[in-house]
Design a protein around this nucleic acid. Structure first.
Length: 766
DNA sequence: AGCACGCCGACT
DNA sequence: GTCGGCGTGCTC
């Protein structure tokens, strides 16, 4: 593939470049003679003229014969890198992803980089900003600061630390440091500085201690696995030991493990010890967790174990923090790379294993643009590098379960709770024909009271925020609908609003029916806000925390609420799935699922799978420490077979049943899907476009097409949506069909009127 | 995607 | 007469 070395110097050489543009092709450029002596290694960034603009692309390879009229070929403007920003295996991975997900290679390479690198920033990081006294400041009489005690104190502190102080050092000295510093800078007493740029991190590696304030801890971790300040490994129970031993046997070859471990069985400890083993071999480990699961708690747990050999890739990092994380991972000094979906593309020059926690989680699939599955890309990455990958879950996806049956994955099963904890007991509350108190049955209310009386916490789960999902006119039956979506508006009592949860639009609460002017408007159904209100009436003395998107919108409010829960200040927690994932609440003894029936009649073929995963996950929040837990599920379908299996907490059986169903109906994992979606401003454009594609598409691959049909919620945010489902027995057929028809899809004469997307292995068939 | 070109309607 | 609406075409 890379033939740069083999070409004779006399032949004209062309650079084949991936350019970020929604175009399914690569672009060839002439290499200027000045660059001909340089070794242009694939994977470097190159700036080129593109149309009337300039763009930064990635060199894929050098070729002797361009795929374009040589007279029209333009010349490279400049190289941005000496050493490749993507190594050979990463380029291979990106090429694979581009063809697998049928997405332009230039966009794929673009998506795999932090934004500063996309914009042409050097692949190095500036060291942390620091402040020190200026020459003037050093020769100063303090007396002129007598009227500003804070500034004076800071001045003395800086005088003692002539080399300068970092943001965090200053912040520990005085939390309002930035005001004082700014004032001192204005007076020319203090100047900004940073370390010598030559000691910047580059591909050679970081200069120990320069980045992290805590030099000792960093050194300790880098030199030897001295565990001075770091928490020690826990003792593994027999099941954990077996799993760990099986992983250890395959450290040097590609194996996909499915660590199917019930809640509390100690999956994380298996990860941690695996990581430790690899660090001892000087290898790196990449860990991906769901978006919602990358909590401060989890980060702390990893930090306390691996100290500064860790880099984290939050969704909340800013551009330069992202670049720092990227450079650190690339430097190979950082051994543990922890992140969400996009971290699957983090550079790891010495990667020894990949871990995907909660592998069934939806957030591993990107839902717009480049619609990749980080889990599947990670498996491919592990395969290319010939290293093991561990997928962990208490409720694995049916795809992964089937892959174990097919022996594509190696199953590691853990059923015992680690430590003292016992499995919670799950009971159903049959709420058919039962009078409910704002959605709550008497049984549930009584148990809530009992639990808090015993000084234990209660967690109530309802996957619907707001006060009530429906506002209905009692006289004529009219309901408040969103003007831009085919959806009802949700009543939010606190702000007296009607909100659309699909497009975000909101309006003041109306007092009169818009159809018959009646004032007899009622709200129906319950949301988390209503449950909170109801419980405040029922238990006026209880401390209640509600956690959903409405209460955690402001930065830091989630952390605050979680802190109140951990301190025991809150006795009752009400939340949506935000609360169900990733958190440990050791003192929760009762989990209540207020409405379990939503998922039973979903339109998506994965609705049952998702429902059982979610309920079992919520149930797992109960009784994690020595407190035995109880789970109560309110349902109208107590005899539904799925509900019965959920009570038994038998996910294996649930999966077997659902797999049998999928086999019968030929849905994934027994077939493969792609969806061509389209949306447009007028009602017919999207359907017309999809009809055009469906009618003109070549079908050598013999796929079956379902539709075109309107999307289940046809209108959303004022746009009409439609979809065409492509279904086949073999993965290959999907790709053949997509490849053959992509020109038609992207260039149909009706395409200008729509926005379209092709989704390979869609997760939501909506 | 971005950007320019070009062709039509409604303004100072 | 020009400003600017967005339909169309192109990017090595």
């Amino acid at each position: 593939m890379t033939n740069s070395g083999n070409l004779s110097k006399n032949n004209p050489r062309y650079a084949r470049i991936a350019i970020p543009a929604p175009l399914y092709q690569v672009f060839d450029y002439r290499i200027p003679s000045a660059m001909l002596d340089q070794t242009l290694i694939p994977g470097i960034r190159i700036q080129v003229p593109f149309g009337r603009q300039e763009r930064i692309g990635i060199l894929l390879e050098q070729v002797e014969t361009p795929n374009y009229d040589p007279r029209k070929i333009k010349t490279i403007k400049r190289c941005l890198d000496q050493t490749p920003i993507f190594d050979a295996s990463m380029l291979q991975l990106l090429n694979w992803a581009s063809s697998y997900y049928q997405y332009p290679i230039g966009e794929v390479t673009h998506a795999a980089l932090p934004s500063l690198l996309r914009k042409g920033h050097e692949a190095k990081i500036k060291l942390e900003k620091m402040w020190r006294l200026s020459e003037l400041g050093n020769s100063l009489q303090f007396s002129i600061l007598n009227k500003a005690p804070k500034q004076l104190a800071l001045f003395h502190y800086l005088l003692k630390n002539s080399a300068g102080l970092t943001k965090s050092q200053l912040a520990t000295f005085d939390e309002n440091w930035s005001y004082s510093i700014r004032a001192l800078i204005k007076k020319l007493i203090v100047e900004e500085c940073s370390y010598d740029p030559h000691s910047c991190i580059d591909e050679v590696g970081i200069n120990e201690g320069d980045i992290h304030e805590d030099k000792n801890e960093h050194k300790a971790e880098c030199d030897k696995n001295s565990t001075t300040k770091l928490s020690p490994a826990l003792k593994l129970n027999p099941e954990q030991s077996v799993a760990f031993a099986k992983i250890m046997k395959k450290l040097n070859c590609f194996t996909t493990f499915l660590l199917f471990g019930d809640t509390g069985s100690g999956k994380t400890e298996v990860y941690l010890q695996t990581i430790n083993a690899l660090i001892k071999q000087n290898k790196q480990v990449l860990i991906l967790v769901p978006e919602i699961g990358l909590t401060p708690q989890l980060i702390d747990r990893f930090k306390s174990r691996f100290g500064n050999t860790l880099t984290v890739n939050h969704s909340k990092l800013n551009d330069s923090e992202r670049l720092t994380a990227w450079v650190l991972a690339n430097s190979n000094k950082v051994k543990v790379i922890l992140g969400t979906r996009s971290a699957v593309f983090m550079p790891c020059p010495n990667l020894g294993a990949i871990i995907i926690d909660e592998e069934h989680d939806l957030s591993f699939k990107q839902q717009d643009g480049f619609r990749y599955s980080a889990r599947d890309v990670a498996i491919r990455r592990a395969q290319l590098l010939n290293i093991p990958i561990i997928l962990g879950s208490a409720t694995p996806s049916l795809e992964s379960m089937q892959n174990c049956i097919n022996q594509k994955f190696e199953l590691l099963r853990m059923t015992k709770r680690a430590g003292q904890a016992q499995k919670p007991k799950i009971h159903l509350i049959d709420i058919r024909a039962i009078k409910l108190n704002q959605g709550l049955s008497d049984t549930l209310i009584t148990e809530i009271k009992n639990t808090i009386a015993q000084n234990k916490q209660v967690l109530l789960f309802l996957n619907r925020r707001g006060f009530a999902p429906t506002l209905l006119c009692h006289d004529c039956g009219w309901t408040a609908q969103c003007l831009r979506c085919d959806a009802r508006l949700t009543y939010h009592a606190k702000h007296s609003l009607l909100r659309c949860h699909h497009c975000g639009s909101e309006q003041k609460l109306i007092k009169q029916c818009l159809q018959c002017n009646s004032q007899d408007l009622h709200h129906y159904g319950q949301g988390t806000e209503q449950i909170e209100t109801a419980l405040k009436q029922l238990l006026p003395d209880a401390n209640i925390s509600r956690i959903d998107r409405d209460t955690t919108r402001r930065k830091g409010s989630l952390d605050k609420a979680l802190a109140a829960i951990h301190s025991g200040e809150s006795q009752i927690l009400i939340g949506t799935q935000m609360l169900a994932k990733g958190h440990h609440f050791p003192n929760v003894a009762l989990v209540g699922v207020i409405d379990s029936d939503q998922g039973l009649h979903g339109t998506d073929f994965r609705a049952s799978e998702r429902l059982s995963q979610l309920i079992l996950q919520v149930a797992g929040r109960a009784g994690r420490a020595e407190t035995p837990g109880q789970v109560l599920i309110q349902t109208h379908h107590p005899h539904h077979p799925l509900m019965q299996l959920i009570v038994k907490q038998d996910y294996q059986q649930i999966a077997d049943n659902l797999l049998a169903e999928r086999k019968e109906t030929l849905f994934p994992p027994f077939s493969y899907l792609a969806i061509l979606r389209a949306e447009a401003n007028d009602a017919d454009a999207a359907l017309n476009y999809l009809n055009d594609v469906a009618n003109l598409a070549t079908n050598q691959a013999q796929v079956s097409l379902l539709g075109p049909m309107p999307a289940p919620m046809e209108r959303r945010a004022g746009r009409y949506r439609a979809q065409l489902i492509i279904n086949a027995n073999q993965r290959k057929q999907i790709h053949e069909w997509a490849q053959a028809n992509l020109p038609l899809i992207s260039q149909s004469k009706l395409v200008r009127r729509v926005r379209w997307s092709l989704d390979i292995d869609p997760q939501e068939v909506l």
